[in-house]
């Protein structure tokens, strides 16, 4: 299986700070669906940021589809759903406008072409928001807003979909629906999915692999191999 993300002996610390990650070894194959979890401050979001090339390791190397992650050239293949607190636009953007912004990865300048419009419509359709495409995001539920942003990430037709704490602020039903949606997208598109969360919740049932991070990787394996004690990642011990 070709490797999508590869960490080799990665250490990371913010400037003058405590180490956040130490000696991380991780290989994620193309098309894998992986949940990365751990307690707050355990380094899971940092691990995702390193994988996407948003941070550079203090030591070791991070490769994305075979290239150094921070110099990765074909970034249009990366779909990213940031933590909800980082998303926001003051104007009443509609679902379609939000999703169209995701297509900027493929066509940042000039007019949209037929294939762009088709990719945008398809992304909206895939997340089940076709009937709400013209509705402002502010008039949708938390779960629907989350789907709109997933469609935004899909609009660029990514090979890797990275989601950072996507269940923050949404109810249990929306979390279940998100898990089902991601399972279906993974099956239909064969896209590599990295799902970062402080808890596994519903996602544990649909992923192929769980990675528990607490400064180091303390568990990496199939969901059914996870020790019962660790189903709540905040209790993960090295």
């Amino acid at each position: 299986m070709p490797v999508a993300v590869e960490f080799e002996h990665v250490d990371f610390a913010y400037l003058h700070g405590q180490p956040v990650l130490q000696d991380v070894e991780l290989r994620i194959g193309s098309g894998e669906f992986v949940a990365i979890a751990g307690p707050n401050g355990g380094g899971k979001t940092t691990l995702l940021r390193l994988a996407l090339g948003l941070e550079r390791p203090t030591d070791g190397s991070v490769r994305l589809f075979g290239e150094p992650a921070h110099r990765f050239s074909n970034r249009a293949v990366l779909g990213y759903l940031a933590q909800r607190t980082h998303l926001g636009v003051q104007a009443p953007a509609t679902v379609r406008e939000i999703v169209a912004a995701g297509r900027a990865a493929r066509r940042p300048f000039g007019r949209l072409r037929a294939e762009d419009r088709s990719a945008i419509d398809e992304a909206i359709e895939r997340v089940g928001l076709a009937e709400l495409a013209r509705r402002p995001l502010t008039r949708l539920s938390g779960g629907q807003q989350q789907r709109a942003f997933i469609a935004k990430a899909l609009a660029a037709e990514p090979q890797l979909l990275a989601l950072d704490e996507p269940t923050t602020g949404v109810d249990v039903a929306a979390q279940e629906a998100l898990a089902e949606l991601l399972e279906r997208l993974h099956g239909e598109l064969g896209v590599t999915i990295l799902y970062v969360s402080h808890e596994f919740g519903a996602i544990e049932r649909v992923v192929q692999r769980l990675v528990l991070v607490r400064e180091r990787i303390v568990f990496d394996g199939a969901p059914d191999a996870l020790p019962a004690l660790w189903h709540d990642p905040s209790h993960a011990h090295a």
Binding site: L54, R75, L78, Y80, A82, L87, V89, E97, R107, P108
Partner: peptide, 22 residues
């Protein structure tokens, strides 16, 4: 007019735009 979509993409989600290589 030329950079409208890219400017909107950054306004909506600056980090996402950075990841996408804008």
């Amino acid at each position: 007019a030329v950079s409208l979509r890219a400017l909107l993409a950054v306004s909506i989600d600056e980090e996402g735009a950075r990841v996408a290589g804008l």
